[in-house]
Nucleic acid binder design. Structure first.
Length: 298
DNA sequence: CTCGACTCCTGCTGGC
DNA sequence: TGCCAGCAGGAGTCGA
């Protein structure tokens, strides 16, 4: 579930656990992710102290005392599993209801798809990514922003200096739909399919509207909606941070609060229940589902 | 340049 | 119950 808020939550969890720790052991089990991992990754990580973390868009950066940073992107299916070493993994069934756990049964065996495992004296961290759409690289810390994956990223939506004027300027002249534009990481870094839909709903803007027509007051509404939905989602994730160290890797429970995402046919939370609301509609844009309320979003 | 279609990979769900 | 098509929260590449 990795869009900006999830990545932020995971990064905060990792930061709380690992900052100051020394990497004792590295196991590279599957180097063929979307981009091949550096051959000598394990050697370059081993023995390094972890100085801190940073997020950029949907990317996480773990900074090391060697002057290098480990870049992690979780792709579609990536998760981080963390547990304290020497402590048995608690049963996944202990997770909160709705956290799509159990299934694999009691005392779940070592989970598959653990492509990279990093251990400190205290922690064991595994990167799990069944679909292998995620990305990992190691690069000089001083050149983080010049990395090919980060170089083209647009501004951080939560940055104070990201204003409605800048958003309008970025949208001007773009003939694609506003939904497509919001998914373009060069325009804005961190929104994905869910939060793009949620932000447009909050702003009362149709996902089909031409991007260039979103300016002025409309752009201001959209920007406020983007910031609000991301901030609330991070707060929801942050509030469950202590649950972060669970074997199922679930973080946050914001999904209970989606107003439109994956709610096709359900009543729009903003329409009066009485007559005309036909409910949330699903359309496909660029091959991806978009959910919206045709009555309140124009 | 911009845009949409296609692609990578595996797992889960829903309809038959 | 079992099977299989369809779909999934991302993003790089390609051709129009």
């Amino acid at each position: 579930m990795p869009e900006l808020p999830e990545v932020e939550t995971v990064m905060r969890g990792l930061s709380a656990m690992l900052t100051g720790e020394v990497i004792a052991r590295v196991e590279l089990r599957r180097p063929d992710l979307r981009r091949p991992l550096p051959q000598d990754l394990a050697r370059r990580l081993a023995g390094r102290r972890i100085l801190g973390f940073r997020r950029r868009g949907k990317y996480m950066l773990m900074r090391l005392d060697s002057g290098e940073s480990l870049l992690i992107h979780l792709g579609m299916s990536g998760r981080i599993l963390a547990r304290e070493r020497g402590r048995a993994a608690p049963s996944a069934r202990l997770g909160p209801q709705g956290a799509a756990s159990d299934a694999r049964g009691r005392n779940s065996p070592p989970e598959g798809h653990e492509h990279l495992v990093i251990e400190t004296d205290r922690w064991r961290i595994a990167l799990v990514d069944p679909r292998r759409f995620g990305m990992i690289d190691l690069l000089p810390t001083a050149e983080e922003d010049a990395h090919p994956l980060l170089r083209e990223l647009g501004p951080e939506p939560l940055a104070e200096d990201f204003t409605a004027e800048r958003l309008s300027a970025a949208l001007a002249g773009r003939s694609c739909s506003i939904k497509s534009a919001l998914l373009d990481q060069r325009l804005l870094a961190g929104l994905g399919n869910i939060y793009a839909a949620e932000a447009l709903f909050r702003a009362g803007i149709s996902p089909r509207r031409a991007a260039r027509s979103v300016s002025g007051a409309r752009a201001a509404r959209l920007l406020a909606a983007i910031k609000a939905v991301l901030t609330e989602a991070i707060a929801a994730g942050g509030s469950s941070l202590r649950d972060y160290v669970r074997p199922d890797g679930e973080v946050g429970f914001f999904q209970d609060r989606f107003a439109v995402y994956d709610r096709e046919g359900e009543p729009c939370p903003r329409c009066p229940g009485v007559p005309p609301c036909r409910g949330i509609r699903r359309i496909v844009q660029q091959g991806r589902s978009t959910f919206y309320c045709p009555r309140t979003q124009r």
